[in-house]
């Protein structure tokens, strides 16, 4: 099993770097993952991550992308509340990259 080491603690991750146990997540985990990708996490990035986690805690699944962009719109206005902006934040795909940083399992299915 692959691991991700953050601040002296070792986290189990799968082949693609998703956390095996979403409850183990810390902000340090997200930071370390972003660092590996060469990404600086801005306030907007964190906002996405926190929204994903709170949604997941409530519903045991990540939200539909549209729900996420709408949340962004509420927070930052229309020009940032769209899929394009989400891809600017998370170039590898909001569901996949943002979910990973948030410590959530990868969405499966025809997505």
């Amino acid at each position: 099993m692959a691991t991700l080491d953050v601040e002296g603690k070792s986290y189990e991750v799968d082949e693609e770097g998703y956390l095996m146990d979403w409850q183990e997540w810390t902000e340090g985990v997200a930071g370390a993952m972003a660092k590996e990708d060469g990404l600086d996490l801005s306030a907007e990035h964190w906002n996405v991550i926190k929204f994903l986690r709170s949604y997941f805690e409530k519903y045991q699944i990540a939200p539909m992308i549209k729900i996420l962009t709408k949340e962004l719109a509420k927070e930052y206005g229309k020009e940032k509340g769209n899929t394009k902006y989400l891809y600017e934040l998370y170039p590898a795909g909001p569901a996949k990259q943002a979910c990973r940083y948030a410590g959530l399992p990868k969405p499966t299915g025809c997505v």
Partner: peptide
């Protein structure tokens, strides 16, 4: 498909 409840453009 459940993707219709999740992804775009689904």
């Amino acid at each position: 498909p459940s993707a219709d409840f999740f992804a775009e453009p689904h």
